[in-house]
Simulated scan of single mutants.
Amino acid sequence: MFGSEYGGILGLLVLVLDVWAIVKIFQSGAGTGKKVLWIVLVLLFPIIGFLLWFFLGPKR
C-alpha cells in the first residue's frame, strides 16, 4: 500500500512529460512524416519514446 502513491505520482509525471514532448514535436520544424513517427513512438512507448525523442529528436 505504501508504494502505490509513488506509482501514481510517477505515472502522472510520465503523462506530463509525454504531453510536453508531443507539444514540442508539433512545434518543431521537422517534416510531417518525422513528426508523426515521433508522436506514435511517444504514444506507444511512453517512457522509452520520450527518452529517445529527448536525446535523439530534432533540435532547434
Rank of each mutant, 00 (worst) to 15 (best):
L10C: 09
L37C: 10
G3L: 11
L44V: 10
I47E: 10
T32F: 14
L37Y: 09
F45T: 13
K35C: 02
I39S: 01
V40M: 09
V23M: 05
F50N: 06
E5K: 06
G57C: 07
L17I: 12
F55N: 13
G8P: 00
L10T: 12
V14S: 07
G7L: 11
I47R: 14
G33L: 06
V36T: 14
W53V: 01
W20V: 12
G3Y: 08
F2D: 15
G8E: 00
I48N: 07
V42R: 06
G7V: 14
F26A: 09
F26Y: 13
L41M: 15
L44T: 10
F55W: 14
V19N: 07
V14Q: 04
F50W: 11
L37F: 11
I48H: 11
F50C: 07
L43V: 08
R60G: 10
Q27W: 15
K35T: 01
D18R: 03
W20G: 07
V14E: 04
V36W: 10
K24S: 03
D18M: 05
G7K: 12
S4D: 14
R60H: 11
L41A: 15
L44M: 15
G49Q: 03
K24I: 05
G57K: 03
P46D: 04
I22S: 00
L52F: 15
E5S: 04
L52W: 14
P46I: 02
V40W: 05
G8D: 01
L13D: 15
I39R: 00
V36R: 06
W20M: 06
M1Q: 07
S28E: 08
L13V: 14
W53K: 02
A30E: 08
L44I: 14
G29F: 05
I39K: 00
L17H: 07
Q27F: 15
I25A: 00
A30Y: 12
P58E: 11
Y6W: 14
I47V: 11
F55D: 09
L51G: 01
L13G: 13
L17A: 10
L44P: 05
V23K: 04
L44S: 12
V42F: 10
V36L: 07
